[in-house]
């Protein structure tokens, strides 16, 4: 197992940096902190905020990526969410969607429940699992330079792409997006599909 590297990246800055370049991308942040991070970066109709469905983030992104093949689709699960749906990496690997990116915001903790350690704190290598599952590209990011180097992977490289981004456990203020599920769904579909959303 590799020696542990120091974690210095702040989650809010990481997510804001990724979203700054989003263009027409569709974004699916996972339950908990990644959803609040996206809200802090600015609510957006083409961000489908998850207030539940832990373990389901990457598979929502897969369904979306298959339906919208001309769009970049970015899943932003936390590490606990990713571990709960770990089999989805194999499913995505076998489908090989070129427009899908999974970028895990990995603080090595279950953040909503008391900051208990997840398996990634104990050496589980998510990028390694993704690569072995058939993702075309992978990276694990610890520094700002590495994050900048990963931006072309996130937005331009043929997918599926997997980027594991290590972030600190530094507390951040709660920024909560709207939480009515049916409304979030309609808003997303209307922004994406226009009148066809209500066929």
């Amino acid at each position: 197992m590799a020696t542990k590297r120091e974690i210095t990246l702040e989650r809010r800055e990481v997510v804001a940096r990724i979203l700054r370049d989003r263009g027409g991308a569709l974004v699916v942040p996972g339950l908990g902190a990644p959803t609040w991070d996206c809200a802090a970066a600015g609510d957006h109709p083409l961000t489908f905020q998850m207030w539940g469905a832990m373990g389901g983030t990457t598979m929502i992104a897969l369904g979306l990526a298959l339906a919208q093949r001309e769009r970049r689709v970015i899943a932003l699960p936390g590490d606990g969410d990713m571990l709960m749906g770990i089999g989805s990496l194999a499913t995505i690997g076998t489908q090989g969607p070129p427009n899908l990116v999974v970028a895990v915001i990995d603080n090595e903790r279950y953040g909503e429940t008391g900051m208990q350690e997840t398996h990634t704190a104990r050496g589980v290598d998510l990028e390694g699992i993704a690569r072995a599952s058939g993702f075309r590209h992978g990276a694990t990011v610890y520094t700002q330079d590495e994050l900048e180097a990963a931006m072309p992977l996130i937005y331009r490289t043929e997918g599926p792409v997997f980027v594991n981004i290590k972030v600190t456990t530094q507390p951040v203020p709660n920024v909560l997006p709207p939480r009515d599920g049916a409304w979030l769904k309609h808003r997303f579909r209307q922004a994406l599909l226009g009148e066809r959303a209500f066929d």
């Binding site: 569709l26 469905a53 929502i60 897969l62 369904g63 990526a65 339906a67 994406l192």
Partner: peptide
């Protein structure tokens, strides 16, 4: 989850 994503798309 996947079919929820499909519907969103």
């Amino acid at each position: 989850s996947m079919l929820a994503g499909a519907w969103l798309g």
